[in-house]
Amino acid sequence: MAEPAAGRTLRVVLADDQELVRSGFAMILGAQQDIEVVAEVGDGLAAVAAVQELAPDVALLDIRMPRMDGLEAARIICARTACRVVMLTTFDQDDYVYESLEAGASGFLLKDLRRDDLVHAVRVVANGDALLAPTVTRRLIADVVRNRPRAGSDPDERLRSLTERESETLNLMARGLSNAEIARAMVVSEHTVKTHVSNVFVKLGLRDRVHAVILAYECGLVS
């Protein structure tokens, strides 16, 4: 299970219009020594306000909420803050998954997940790894991307800014390898891999590994 940096407390905002769901998730997360739930809200507008005021590490957003749904809240939060977003839903249609990722979310979870998976998701996303690694369903991401029209700008142009090693790093990320696995494959230190990953994010304007994978599929870097 991914762990946060030593001594660091992860701050979380929970947004769900169902009080029982919201309070249940808050109890699970609040029981962890390294996680603090700083706000519980019932709609998207309140979620945006809480994130802007409290600057949490992660926001868990229900997709269907009154006043403003989770997808719109995610777009605003991801565009205006450094907070990472995980979407929560009782539905698992591909459209919701794609729209969540398109909005900038770093994860997509069904509400019937196990408590350990919820805690793991918060830690992974807060650490910048999104919900990728070996447990990510790369097939789902590939299917979603393949069924959507390409963006107006040519992603291939953006890839030309990468060095050879950065391109190799992106390719291995897209295949689901962790930093440690990439380090072994490239015969470099894990610190070097982290530098390459950071450079890829900055040069391509990406938030995390999930969006790097999507770009790699869109560009045909991975099939």
Rank of each mutant, 00 (worst) to 15 (best):
H211E: 15
A126P: 11
M1I: 14
A121V: 06
A31D: 09
F108R: 11
H120C: 05
C83R: 02
E181D: 10
A183S: 08
R64F: 13
E99P: 07
L10G: 11
R123P: 13
R8C: 03
R8F: 05
A212M: 11
D43C: 12
R165L: 10
L131C: 11
R75M: 06
V48K: 09
A133K: 01
R175Y: 01
V125H: 01
A183F: 02
V124P: 01
L20D: 00
G104A: 02
D129I: 12
A79R: 04
H196Q: 11
F201E: 05
V12I: 10
A5P: 06
L71N: 07
A31I: 05
F91W: 03
F108P: 14
G152Y: 09
R67A: 06
A59S: 12
S189P: 06
G104S: 04
E218C: 05
H196E: 09
R115V: 11
R158F: 12
M186N: 01
A59G: 09
D16W: 03
R64A: 14
R148E: 15
T137Y: 06
V197Q: 13
V38F: 05
E166F: 02
D17R: 01
A142D: 09
Q93Y: 07
G220I: 10
R160V: 07
D62Y: 04
V122F: 00
S161I: 03
D143L: 06
F25R: 02
A79E: 09
G30V: 07
N199G: 12
L88P: 08
D16Q: 03
T90S: 10
P4R: 00
E166L: 04
R75E: 15
V21N: 07
L204N: 02
A180H: 02
E166Q: 10
R138S: 02
L113S: 05
N171S: 09
R11S: 13
N147I: 00
R75W: 13
E218T: 10
R22V: 13
R8W: 08
F91C: 07
A74I: 09
E166I: 06
A180R: 02
R138G: 11
A151D: 15
S223A: 10
L177N: 04
S178G: 00
A133E: 13
V41M: 03
H211R: 13
T9H: 08
G205P: 06
D156P: 00
D16Y: 05
M27G: 01
A55N: 05
G176N: 04
V124Q: 14
E102H: 08
L170C: 06
G44A: 05
M87C: 00
M27Q: 14
S153K: 13
A183L: 01
L170K: 10
R114L: 15
V197D: 08
V119F: 02
I76Y: 07
I76A: 11
V97P: 08
F91M: 13
G176W: 02
A49N: 09
I63A: 03
M68G: 01
M186W: 11
D94H: 02
